[in-house]
Design a protein around this nucleic acid. Sequence first.
DNA 1: GCAAGGTC
Length: 693
Amino acid sequence: MKKTLIICEKPNAAGKIAAAIADGKPRRREFKSVPYYELEQDGKKIVVVPALGHLFTLKNVKPLRDYPVYDVRWVPAYEADRRAARSKPFVEAIAEMAKDADEFINACDYDIEGSTIGYNILRYLCGPDAPKRAKRMKFSTLTAKELRKAYENLLPTLDIGLVNSGLARHLLDWYWGINVSKAMSSAVEAAHKRFVKLSAGRVQTPTLKILFEREKEIRAFVPEPYWVIKAIFEVGGQRIEALHKKEKFFDKSEAEKVHEICRNKPARVAKITVREYRTAPPPPFDLGQLQSEAYRCFGYTPARTQQLAQSLYDNALISYPRTSSQKLPPEIGYAEILSRIGEIREYGELVEKLLGREELKPHEGKKTDPAHPAIHPTGESPKGLTGPRRRLYDLIVRRFLSTFADPAVKQSIRIDLDVAGQPFYFRGRRIMEKGWLEFYGPYGATEEVLLPEFKEGQELMPTELVFEEKETQPPPRYNPSSIIKEMEARNLGTKATRAIILQNIYDRNYITGNQIEVTELGEKTIEALLGYCPEIASEELTAHFEREMEKIQNGQSDKEKVLEDAKEKLNKILEKFRKHEVEIGKVLGEAYRKTRRAQKVLGECPKCHGELRIIVSRRTKKRFAGCSNYPKCNYSYPLPQRGKIVPLGKTCPECGAPMIQVNRMGSRPYRMCLNPDCVTKANWGNPRKNKPQ
DNA sequence: GCAAGGTC
């Protein structure tokens, strides 16, 4: 009997594809714990087998001693990296299934990476002529109907354009990233005779540059004083603040004049403007939006949210999280998911309201995804789910419910006042119809500002006229959520990699803090790159790649030619690097030393005004905060022994001791002061909270 | 050691 092998990108997709094309139920089997599916149809045997993303990766042919290197080949991922051990049984399973197969179908996601994943599997595991004979399944959602249709309308060959651009993408990223990273590390070695792990890449370096530019803006910012004038009223026991219409006075004498004119003068209500407006329900979550909301609502970093969402997905509670889609196709079965969610106590009432409607129609967003719908709950019971995963699940459920609800109707009121000819105003806001806000619950809370009744012409006497000096503020720092949004807007990285690449930039000590600051090392690194390899620091490289990829895709450009061009360009850049190796290395090595030292300084010693630093005891190997003037000063504080300690550069408002943040794997970072006897810790380890008696 | 991309 003939045998067809269908190669899928991941286990979950293999299950869905097998179920969709089988007339009956496919048989689920396992090979070295890799699940695969068997079915018989039209007199032939079909085997559906999953990959685990990329099973092959690029590896240096020779150990990397010097640059430039372009001698690189594809190897099974587990051979290049011990951490990829999980991919080994998948490689073995596919090789086994391919042995007696005479037809091959690449059914990975229909995008550049999916085409590359399938192509590598075909050429390395299915025989030398498999890529030429293989067919391609093309689908844009994993719904049974579409999968069935894709199977019945197979593309007769691989999408060789996508394959070639995928292969080129991997090689180009590797050429640029590995060589420039190596050049920087070698420079430090040449100047300081020590190894420092430095890196550059098509995504990480432009991202660092964005952060660095903001850093420069903040440093160059000169605050300007300005003055505000506010009239304060007490109406029916309510305090109302009206601001002078010219919100900022940059001319002090002008402000003083206005203040003088208005002093002790009554206000007259000049105009009341009432406006009603509707806010549409939010679209369902794509990964980026989920990361952004989880940061806003819970303070979770995008990397943490991604990890939590993956865990919810592993437990079948939510759909595939690495999606850029804001669409919910009807095939997911709105009513069924809703009614199952309705069985969860806290959502019962809300769900009833939605199910009682004539039509269920989600308010979708614009973004789409080649293989997955927006993130949504599956309806599976979240029994026993607690802590951060529960919170994230609640956010996802409420977002899903909100998307089916009505717009919210809000009313804004603006009251314009006249005080001795000077214009002042204040605003009120009320919610007329809650609409989706009711479903989004705590995450959509908008503060109402309810005002007493006013009439035009009415007179009021201010209880106070405030004259206040303020300063203009520098542009805000990026935080992990806003920089990821910026990366998305600039098309840097992908939904699945942005949070990881940001984490990498932190781990390299290029940046620090939640309000992201660029360290000395980050600054010198980006400056060196701007000086010697501006290409890699510019988003233009990504744009250039993209144009070339597109040309390769539609056959207008040859992959080999694009790669040769890249090598030539890189060789010139790296030569320049080499020539200035010692001077570049000196600067980077020095910056590295300073940055590492700064990370150990926690604050000022309260006893002698020396520096409190993280010190690891030689004797006990435990760490503590000790004074830099030791042995003259022996002041010290204990430190938590686990997790990364980040100095906050602030002191405790209660006791004045330096503040730190503790980042521990798998838990939310927390802030504390160093003083173990501080009143802020009075309730720590409160048995009432931990153990109900 | 070094990238960015996919997966769990």
